[in-house]
Design a protein around this nucleic acid. Structure first.
Lengths: 343, 343
DNA sequence: CTGAAAGCGCTAACAA
DNA sequence: TTGTTAGCGCTTTCAG
């Protein structure tokens, strides 16, 4: 295929293709968008010219003229936590075939950064926004409700959303885990988590967990928090620390699977009998951990499905008109694994 | 702060702010971009009006008019592999303060998808593109060289780049690992990797590895490949399989740390003496694995630094003019861990 | 320091 | 089936 390397360093325009093919700009535009009726002959001439020149359309101009942008903003706290790439996978799948493309922004769990990222995104006039959590700054919430586009808040349903909401109840998840633990006869419970005041979902899980324990007249007897570093390694350290300080503990509830796995490794290597002597549980259901010979009890957070549903809400949105305001509550299921004794 | 919820669902324009503040659109624009000289009085009036209305500028129009877009396209094969989020972290850091924002596209290791993603990205006229690897379809390569913007190919330096290149030599990395293994006296070597013809970096590592073995008159005696699933679990299965088939093996080289860790767990649980009876090594230096009591030998792939350098090349680019064509070769370093015997 | 005019590259709407 | 006209909302440029 002959190709004319664009010498003059000026991005090609529709006009260049128009001239090269001897067809009006408008018709070229129609061909390139598969729009309207164009004769096979002209279509081919145009496509040939476009390909030969190496024309790449300018979506900026297109978006401005058509008032439509095929982008969906996705705002998440982090990429390092495997949970979010999985949600993204679900979003990609849900957007498949809709002509929409996700654009990702990361907040590092900072409300200020969330506000900035949101502002940047909205300034590109996306077709919709998907963002994690229900807690946002007032300014962010105002931007969202003024945006006039579909908004889906994901992961969490414990609270009020701006528009649509898809997620699980972390409060209930914590509570269910407490019920399971209490039901299995454990009595002395410790909690290990990350030191993140901004991780509202972890906080709600803990609250629900304590509510569940309270029903049985129990409470957390000791706790340990970490920040930064390798979660697996932190899990080990914290487990050792908490058990040295509170040797009476017979159950450890971790705020995520990664530190839970670290704790599990420590227990196994240090001769603790799991789950008889001490029970363990995490949260998320990361497939990553399938490779351990002892499976940590956990709770699937429906990550992929959350992304999928959120994307479907955005892509299924009526082009103009009524605001959706859907609310989808998914049910996480407890995976018992090998670290809670049955009875 | 009083706020007038935008009733009419029409995105606000500069004109709205102009009318609300009694200042020309042009001056409003100047204030909002901190450009040119504007009196303090008007500046404040404008900012107040913009905030009160909840104005969000339209970057589409801005970009079209100014012919400048503060976006950098980043194209990577996957987000599920922790390596790439880390590279992204480096890119974010490197772009910090430049006013540029990364926009991520994912290819799933498919050249066709890479081509599509690249085309989409270029159609937004970004200020630069960072993409993983040196292998691209002809069409992709043509788009890159015709784009007229700085391009940085990252991760790999074994081959020709379109413009700038930042990475490590995977061939050399494989070779260095082979040298270390041979030097430690291992003689019967197996290889375990993923079944990905499109993962050129893994392929080059393996080639370099075999070259290194060849120097000592050795070659791989058996190999095992996987696709999909939990890498940790696959590592276990493959390790069991290869050792049952070829019990003479005294070293296993894994194409990534995750399957390596799975293999290590299997060996430890099945009474293999590591590293005396059998040595193990992976690739990447994932901090994830710090939590294991036995540290897998590996090689740091300089993920973060690669991202940082790439971003610096883009953001440090002279606004117009000469094409950079920088070439930065980073040196991965061998981390011996506990799974190669020393001598 | 502020404003008016022109136009970025494309597409909606209409005309032929 | 194809072409023409008039903007999209902003910034550049130049004039006050």
């Amino acid at each position: 295929m002959s190709r004319e390397p664009n010498e003059n360093r000026r991005p090609l325009t529709l006009r260049d293709v128009s001239e090269a093919s001897g067809v009006s700009e408008m018709t070229v535009s129609r061909v390139l968008r598969n729009r309207g009726d164009v004769s096979v002959a002209t279509r081919e001439r145009v496509l040939e010219a476009a390909k030969r020149l190496g024309y790449v359309p300018n979506k900026i101009a297109g978006a401005l003229a058509s008032q439509r942008v095929n982008l969906v903003g996705v705002i998440i706290p982090s990429l390092g936590n495997l949970v979010f790439p999985e949600v993204l996978g679900g979003i990609s799948d849900g957007l498949e075939g809709s002509g929409l493309q996700p654009v990702v922004g990361v907040t590092d769990y900072s409300p200020e950064k969330e506000e900035t990222v949101l502002y940047e995104m909205l300034s590109w006039r996306p077709s919709g926004v998907i963002l994690a959590g229900l807690e946002h700054s007032d300014a962010a919430r105002a931007m969202l409700s003024n945006s006039g586009i579909p908004i889906v808040e994901i992961m969490d349903v414990d609270g009020e959303g701006v528009d649509s909401v898809v997620g699980i109840s972390h409060r209930r998840a914590g509570r269910q885990m407490a019920d399971a633990i209490v039901g299995s006869g454990y009595k002395h419970i410790g909690f290990l988590g990350s030191k993140m005041p901004e991780d509202h979902r972890a906080r709600k899980r803990l609250e629900g967990f304590r509510e569940g324990l309270a029903v049985a007249g129990l409470d957390i007897e000791d706790q340990e928090f970490y920040a930064g570093g390798s979660a697996l390694a932190k899990g080990r350290e914290m487990t050792q620390a908490i058990l040295e300080r509170s040797p009476q503990l017979d159950f450890l509830y971790y705020s995520n699977d990664m530190i839970g796995a670290g704790g599990m490794l420590w227990c196994l290597e240090n001769g603790k009998r799991v789950p008889e002597e001490i029970g363990l549980a995490g949260f998320n259901g990361l497939p990553l951990l399938d490779g351990f010979s002892c499976r940590l009890a956990t709770m699937d957070a429906c990550r992929r499905e959350i992304g999928l549903k959120a994307a479907e809400i955005i892509s299924g949105m009526p082009h103009e008109g009524v605001i959706g305001g859907e609310r989808i509550v998914l049910e996480p299921k407890l995976e018992w694994g090998d670290t809670i004794r049955k009875r």
